[in-house]
Design a binder for these strands. Structure first.
Lengths: 211, 211, 211, 211
DNA sequence: AATGAATGAGGATTCATTCAT
DNA sequence: TATGAATGAATCCTCATTCAT
């Protein structure tokens, strides 16, 4: 019995491993050719198996795409979480978080685009941030709000105002990232200048001026 | 003679009408399925004609796409131009321009996405704004720079700094628009709050704080 | 009545003119792109009329091709006839005829190929020369035979032998021409050497040696 | 293990068989309709499978054509090689080689035409023989030259002259073959008379007369 | 577990042809 | 006389998917 379980387990692990292989191959194709050039055949070619095998592990291409989305989404969420830690002064924290977030996003441009420009309900269920109440339902916004609240100026501010500020920070940062991805061939120096300038603007916006 | 001219004219108009029909059908398909799912067959099906007929009016699919792009691009450029005028205080001008731009973009969401998220060189030749020197090559950035220069704080500022500020204003506004389009189902009130908040942030950024 | 006839005549002439225009355009396309790239559309484009007009003058594409074949065939036959004249010594006559024939064929390579490599019965009815009895049914062979008979060596020769000789002269000359057309990019000098050499061989063959 | 190998072998053989089937179908279509009427659909129809299946066995139509060409070309080259051997008197050797070559070519008329009338650079790279220097680059010409050199009359002859003679022998023989193929329905007796007559002419040309 | 065979739907074009005007 | 509209068939090719083995 125990043995049998062990075998089953190993088998299960192997299955997972294969699925992972397939997904990774798919990711690579997406990275290099774009999501609309992804095909089952190409995945099969990459893992050096026959296309039919893919159907042992995934019901159809859509299922692969769904998993891909999930995987990418998790990566992107992981971005934010990995960035949090190292507390200090809240403004500084926002600066660092934003900076890291941008850099990490730029390291996975195709996945970032795929997820963040996707308007299927399944994906939006995770990625939408502009709706009223996002601060309680979206981790990213929540974290930003928490930081903002620690800033003197926002101490007595309305929750709604803080949420809006967080949403704007998020949406505008998203905009800069997407444009930098789309306008490829911007050199590194210029990219850094833009990022620094953007962060400076955020700081100007949150520290001074009207709420 | 007059009659003959009249006939020719009507024919020309009819041709234009057909071409327009095709383009509109194409736009609808793009709206509902995305640009990469656009096919000549689908267009033909939509207008209830045979696919070959399309080739009477357009040389090939690329020509259709080119027209589509041009059409959208012209609309978007028209946005900016229509928005300029009504001079006053430069900060106010930027506020009004941004506001109008956002509202107009939201009125043609699919076209905006199609153009602004397109990374083909032909399109980017018109839409890229983040490169070093954009202030002299892109009208939109140029106009923003001109306004910024009129603001006291930037009187003695470095041209490069001003360009960067303009670029950030543009890229972040773009970000907000795209997210509002992608996260459809945001209600009007929330949209307006976000827009106002964004503009306020821009103002905070440019009036106060470090450059 | 006279007038009416005059008009009809002019109309008929005009129709002929148009048909000629169409055929000429077709020939040009065949010359530049080969016979299998010939299309009604291309003809129409060349004469700057609409494709439908073609159908006023020809029943269908096949009819055009038929006329084309006939026209080309007549040209090729004209070759031979034009070459005959200027009598003298029979050997010399064969030399001159062959030489002229080759040069003229090389001036209309595509037409020559089209006709001479065509194995449709209609065309073969004019172009076949190897069958027993060709000397009485094919002008080209007949002329060659007549020349050969004037040569001393063949004075008493069997008619069948003479016919065979004529057929070989014809078929081998054809071979040289076709190869020179197919192996384009042979330079003029080399072409002339080959032609001279070929003619010399014919002379060697007919003057000396066994029959 | 043996079984497994056996299976693989059988599969490989089956694949080869299928490919062969496709190629044969293609050859038949070419025979009956000409090479430019060959289409993937027609092949599929002939073997009674769907067109897409063809793409399991061949990358694209070009690959099919390439195989077809290669197959035919190999046969034709094999002709020449098979014909060489059995040395004797050089004149006799040329006679025998030519005779065999003609007979073998007539046994694969469509393939011979396909290859020898093809003017694509890829094919011409193997089949062109009329250029200056062919005696060193084309086996067929080289062999003929070697034989010619052994003939007394050519002992002291210029290499260029010998090359030209070989080229003429080749081109004229080609002409006779092609015409016999195109003018189908020539009876065997007549064919043989023509062949013998042609060979006699070659001999007359090379043994006697001027070089 | 793995695969090759097979297909049908869909992709862009091209073309000959008909027909109403 | 001349043409534009319209089509259906044909071209090559790709792809997701199923099925028997």
């Amino acid at each position: 019995m125990v043995t049998s379980l062990g075998i089953k387990e190993r088998k299960a692990r192997e299955v997972d491993h294969r699925r992972e292989l397939i997904l990774t191959a798919a990711e690579e194709i997406i990275s290099s050719e774009g999501i609309d050039k992804l095909s089952v055949r190409k995945i099969a070619a990459k893992i050096e198996y026959s296309p039919s095998l893919i159907y042992h592990y995934f019901k159809d291409k859509d299922e692969i795409l769904k998993h891909l989305m999930e995987k990418s989404y998790k990566k992107i969420v992981a971005l934010l979480i990995s960035v949090q830690s190292s507390t200090e002064d809240p403004t500084d924290k926002i600066r660092k978080m934003t900076e890291s977030y941008i850099h990490l996003a730029l390291q996975m441009p195709e996945q970032y685009k795929t997820i963040m420009l996707n308007s299927s309900p399944d994906i939006l269920a995770h990625t939408s941030v502009l709706f009223d109440g996002a601060s309680t339902k979206r981790q990213a916004v929540a974290i930003l709000c928490k930081c903002l609240k620690q800033i003197d100026k926002y101490k007595n501010a309305d929750d709604k105002q803080i949420e809006l500020t967080a949403q704007i920070i998020w949406a505008t940062t998203f905009g800069l990232i997407i444009r930098m991805i789309i306008e490829n061939e911007i050199d590194e120096k210029q990219k850094n200048l833009l990022i620094q300038h953007h962060i400076q603007h955020i700081e100007n916006g949150i520290i001074q001026g009207k709420t």
